[in-house]
Design a protein around this nucleic acid. Sequence first.
DNA 1: TCTACATTTTGACAATTATCGAAGTATTAG
DNA 2: CTAATACTTCGATAATTGTCAAAATGTAGA
Lengths: 104, 104
Amino acid sequence: MSSADVKKLARAFSALANENRLKLFLNLLEESRLDLQKGRAHDCFLVKLLGNLSIGASTVSHHVKELEDAGLIETSRDGKNLICTIRPDTMRSLGDLFANVRPR
Amino acid sequence: MSSADVKKLARAFSALANENRLKLFLNLLEESRLDLQKGRAHDCFLVKLLGNLSIGASTVSHHVKELEDAGLIETSRDGKNLICTIRPDTMRSLGDLFANVRPR
DNA sequence: TCTACATTTTGACAATTATCGAAGTATTAG
DNA sequence: CTAATACTTCGATAATTGTCAAAATGTAGA
């Protein structure tokens, strides 16, 4: 694994290391799975995420950008609303990392 | 997912968020897979890990403890040497987290 | 027991990070 | 155009973290 890859990985884990940011991400993941069941696309408004945490809007905005810069999510806009979407490619590489460890 | 679970998860990601600590962990993972192929038990000495990084022994010791406290590895002793072992149970729960995301 | 080796603990410091509130920007509705 | 809503940027601050060097501890061998 290249040094650049390690850097990228560390960045992703760093984004998930903060409790509030992790909660945002887990919300998105759960939403993604619910929508998967219904066969719909998954997305989540910032304002909706905000409701679940006791931190300010500006802080949430920072956190979302951090998740995005780390390659964990993508964002787009629907009018005034920010839409966050999980990046399945990144999920796959993270998942692979933890696979195939010998059970004891 | 309970609040305690989220805390634990964040702790694990936090442990992997530092580049040097991540390298230690990736070394252990790789070693674990090599040994898996050979059907042997896997373990790795601290002093061996140390060689690959340009940081002091005391720092590596801190990092190892951090990985252990985060539930990612277990340690034991063989004489003077510290032996580090990947925890497959934790690997499994982390792997599950990133599974089942809809591809686009 | 003395010594060398492997690791750990301690104390310090610089760098990074999480968060806030206020001001700023963009978008929509009226 | 104006006001309201949703988000972003800025500047500040407190808390956390990564690293080091030095001293301490534990272990094995002579």
